[in-house]
Design a protein around this nucleic acid. Structure first.
Lengths: 190, 190
DNA sequence: TTGACATTCGGAGCAGCGCTCCGTTTAACT
DNA sequence: AGTTAAACGGAGCGCTGCTCCGAATGTCAA
């Protein structure tokens, strides 16, 4: 068995820069959306562009660092809800939370849907885990006879993202999000 | 009353170039989607970039030239359908046609939704006319008690675009379009 | 047919983008 | 203090949308 050579600890400046980049990215992405200029993020973090790309090799990696934890929490939350109570309420509640997450940044629904095409995306893992957790809630609600059996987990993911997508296409539609969410959910019931 | 100075007829080369640009744009947009490179369109049309921009001052103007007629036809079609028969079938059928139109080019749903924000867009007029025609069918179906009264014309437009949007987010979802369309429509019924 | 001229053409140029590459600096360990 | 691997930062590449203007050309009158 090969002895693992003791890995050198990351340099202090590297850690500092990584933190600053994440902070700044959160700001910039909140302002400009998920398609914000990465040059801008580096500039505002007071860091070279090369530094940004070393820490986060592409936009998805940066977003994964910003959103990964939240996705993980959503997956856990689904496990919790799977345990008790009304499966319909569990599914609906969870989806509502998901939609809020997907609406956190303008342009995020596109990014989330892109993980379906691109398994190599850094967001793929956390996103898939979350999607599968949701699929569990869906299956339970279907077993309980509350949701149409011809709805797949991917359908659900797509529709939830679509509702969030609508909300950030026009300011006038943002206020309709909950309403549209209910319309779509009603279409899924038996 | 000022005499309108007889406007010079457009030059033959100008007409020729405009036609060639439209032909080429249809090809390129079919291949690359509504966000295709305009430089590419000009290049493949064998025309300078300046020429493209003189004929079509921005991307929306080019798309309007490509799609305007189809939108007009859809608006007329709504008028026809408004006359006879089952209002629910009329609405559903028309929306299905609309969705096919919105799915004609990858990225088109975004463009259509953008007309809600930007009344100055060259696509705004034809798009609004079409939207209002659809709203007429919606109102009829609501009067007939077939569609929930809390659905607005804008809701309908947004949801239809959202279904088309889903279909072009991942190849695997394109085949689910009709299914998703039905799910959403069912949510709108009383 | 020729000359005049408005119209049209075409592409260089600007500012921005994502991303790579590499010479320079620096933190960390001996 | 000296060595060295790691990290830094920004010039540079090829792309984007869009503007601007000198050169070319179609059209119409003489």
């Amino acid at each position: 068995m090969a002895v693992e050579p003791t890995a050198r600890a990351p340099r202090a400046d590297a850690l500092r820069n990584r933190d600053r980049l994440l902070e700044t990215a959160a700001e910039v992405v909140a302002e400009q959306g998920a398609q914000a200029s990465l040059r801008d993020v580096a500039r505002r973090a007071g860091v070279g562009l090369g530094t940004l790309y070393r820490h986060f090799p592409n936009r998805e990696a940066l977003l994964e660092a910003l959103l990964g934890r939240r996705f993980g929490q959503l997956a856990e939350r689904a496990q919790e809800l799977a345990g008790g109570g009304d499966p319909d309420a569990a599914l609906t509640g969870w989806l509502r939370e998901f939609c809020q997450g997907a609406g956190a940044y303008q342009g995020l629904p596109e990014t989330l849907m892109a993980t379906l095409r691109d398994p190599a995306s850094p967001l793929h893992a956390s996103c898939t885990a979350m999607r599968e957790a949701g699929a569990g809630l869906l299956a339970a609600a279907q077993r309980a006879g509350r949701i149409r059996p011809d709805v797949t987990g991917t359908d659900l993911f797509a529709l939830a993202n679509a509702v969030s997508w609508i909300a950030d296409q026009a300011p006038s539609l943002a206020g309709r999000r909950e309403h549209l969410f209910r319309l779509v959910m009603d279409g899924l019931r038996v």
